[in-house]
Write a protein that binds this DNA or RNA. Structure first.
Length: 571
RNA sequence: CGGGGCGUAGCGCAGUCUGGUAGCGUAUCUCGUUUGGGACGAGAGGGUCGUAGGUUCAAAUCCUAUCGCCCCGACCA
């Protein structure tokens, strides 16, 4: 494209509302335009990259025999009432009424729609397995959108759904998608890892689910990886072990005075003990439908609770720290809560050695116990893995250290089971002519989030460094010339590069060299070719610059095309 | 939704405390000089100071309400 006839505007200043590099660069490089909080319009440069991501997605989905469809953006509330999610979705689902007063919503996801399509169009097990997907706009009214396209309210998502007659088929297709996703992120040129994930509300905990995480410091997710064992999991799910700890042996239970020492840090400081020789007592309220149950959770003093693990252990609908007013009603003094004398169900984290002794609250103001030995002093408790993995932990065998990294969740695959098919009465006839609810899987890729993740992972202080597969153009061709002959040669180069199949951004605006170089760095196309009178008139040299490595090569006019091809292949 | 911050020209900001009718940088337009890392000179256009109400002789500035945006948290297939 000739920039002199193009539509592209760049900015020197960082917009005040962009926090992280990828968001700042997308704004500065004129990729996106903010229309409202968390709602962006995609400008030509971004759209070209998006189309490339989509093309890779389509190619890989074709290989696993998934068929592309496009579902409606607005869906009737009735479908959501069938699945039960009309009531459980919460405010992130944007609801509206049509002119006749019917409930409708903007699709935050499409299990209901696809299940409806399926039940009306598929009748026999012979048509299974079936995988359908779309690349479409989703709307989730996030309470706090942030970081540009990273967590937008309106965004582009590829969502796929599969249907199966049995678990073997589901497993098989799940593995196909696993491979498909790996191929996609590989093809996109991204540094990613696959991690075990928590299914959350999507499915029961025995179903498989994996996340595809692009590693980046500004990622919103935390992942745990173990290099030696190849274990990788979202921290919400991750199992890890503490290193060797010097616990105290069983000892006499003693009440001790700990005036004004409410936190673990204060108590341990006062007693001169390391934090892991104390127990952290947390009270959580689990909500089951209308019912609320309060639990006392005990962790090592320097561990943190993993709420996702607790929620899944208690299999409750909602979970929250118990309100102070309720603690008072339960006679639990904040800062001095402990297991002895607490009339709540008690759960110990597995990292606690139940035969050793600890400092713990005595449920009496300004008082703690010393020598509290759970197996001896506490009646009726359960144990579970409830702690949050932390830096310094070891893998489950206890042999290898784990690492904690930040990631951007760009893909997530789930086994859904028959939750939706059953709820919406979608059936096919099996071999015996019996109607059965098929098993389902669902698989998502955040397309626009992937775009931003690619930039977050590939940039420097001067701008974007596009991975070759998704760069909006291949080559930035710049010309620094006053005279017509040089301009004419630049024009010829442009046409020759196009003829070779390159996508060329031809900067023929005639702006100063500084402006041109800054813009070229900012948009970060893989190869930059510059023809300028200074070098060209002296010895016929044209410059090739590789954005990623920063290497520069001087070549002659007649070898330019072959050299560009060579470097392009080598990227 | 809780806590905090900010709304002044397309963008980035000053001016607000201490009221006197709006300014800087950049971007844009014109003319000229420039051309290998955001050039220089001269000139020009662009603002109901988020919105509404109030106080005042007078409000960007003080008060009230409201809307929008950002950050932390909660929430989140």
């Amino acid at each position: 494209m000739r920039l002199s006839k193009g539509y592209w505007k760049t900015y020197k200043e960082i917009p005040s509302d962009a926090e992280i590099p990828s968001h700042q660069l997308m704004m500065r490089a004129g990729l996106i335009f903010k229309t409202a909080a968390g709602i962006y319009s995609y400008l030509p440069m971004a759209l070209r990259a998006i189309h490339k991501i989509e093309a890779i997605i389509r190619k890989e989905h074709k290989r696993i025999n998934a068929h592309e469809i496009q579902m409606s953006m607005v869906t009737p509330g009735d479908l959501w009432k069938e699945s039960g999610r009309w009531d459980t979705m919460g405010s992130e689902m944007a609801r509206l009424k049509d002119a006749a007063g019917r409930d409708m919503c903007l699709s935050p996801t499409n299990e209901e729609t696809i299940t409806d399509i399926f039940r009306m169009t598929v009748d026999s097990y012979k048509q299974l397995p079936l995988s359908l997907y779309q690349i479409n706009t989703k709307f989730r009214d996030e309470l706090r959108p942030r970081f540009g396209l990273m967590r937008g309210r309106e965004f582009l998502m590829k969502d796929a759904y599969s249907f199966h007659i049995d678990k073997d088929s589901l497993d098989e297709v799940y593995n196909d998608f696993y491979q498909c996703y790996s191929n996609i992120f590989e093809s996109l040129g991204l540094d990613y890892i696959v991690v075990e994930a928590d299914a959350g509300a999507m499915a029961s905990s025995d179903q498989k689910t994996h996340e595809f995480q692009v590693i980046a410091d500004n990622g919103e997710d935390t992942v745990v990886v173990c290099h030696e064992t190849s274990y990788a999991a979202n921290v919400e799910k991750a199992k890890s072990k503490r290193g060797k700890l010097d616990f105290l042996p069983e000892a006499e239970l003693k009440e001790i005075s700990t005036p004004n020492a409410k936190t673990i840090a204060e108590v341990c400081e006062l007693l001169g003990k390391p934090k892991h020789q104390s127990l952290k007592s947390l009270v959580y309220s689990a909500i089951y439908g209308e019912k609320e149950v309060h639990y006392l959770i005990l962790l090592l003093g320097d561990d943190e609770l993993n709420e996702v693990k607790l929620k899944s252990f208690l299999s409750c609908d909602h979970l929250a720290p118990t309100k102070d007013s309720i603690l008072t009603e339960l006679n639990l003094p904040i800062g001095y809560i402990g297991p002895i004398g607490a009339s709540l169900p008690i759960v110990f984290d597995e990292a606690v050695d139940l035969n050793c002794s600890y400092v713990a609250g005595a449920n009496k103001v300004d008082t703690h116990f010393e020598g509290l030995t759970p197996s001896r002093d506490v009646k009726n408790f359960k144990t579970a893995d409830l702690r949050l993995a932390q830096e310094g932990d070891y893998d489950q065998s206890g042999k290898y250290k784990i690492e904690i990294k930040r990631g951007i969740e760009v893909g997530h695959i789930f086994q859904l089971g028959n939750k939706y098919s059953k709820a919406m009465n979608a059936t096919v006839l099996d071999k015996n002519g019996k109607a059965v609810a098929p098993l389902m899987g669902c698989y998502g890729i955040g397309v626009t989030r992937t775009l931003q993740a690619a930039i977050e992972q590939n940039h420097d202080e001067n701008g974007i460094i596009w991975p070759k597969p998704i760069a909006p153009y291949h080559i930035y061709l710049g010309v620094i010339a006053k005279k017509d002959p040089t301009k004419k040669i630049a024009q010829e180069l442009y046409e020759e590069l196009l003829k070779e199949g390159f996508e060329v951004l031809f900067d023929d605006r005639g702006v100063g060299p500084g402006v041109m170089f800054k813009d070229a760095d900012l948009i970060g196309l893989p190869i930059r070719v510059v023809i300028g009178e200074r070098d060209f008139e002296k010895d016929g040299e044209i410059e090739i610059f590789l954005r990623k490595s920063g290497e520069k090569f001087k070549v002659q006019r007649d070898e330019l095309i072959s050299e560009v091809k060579k470097y392009w292949e080598g990227l």
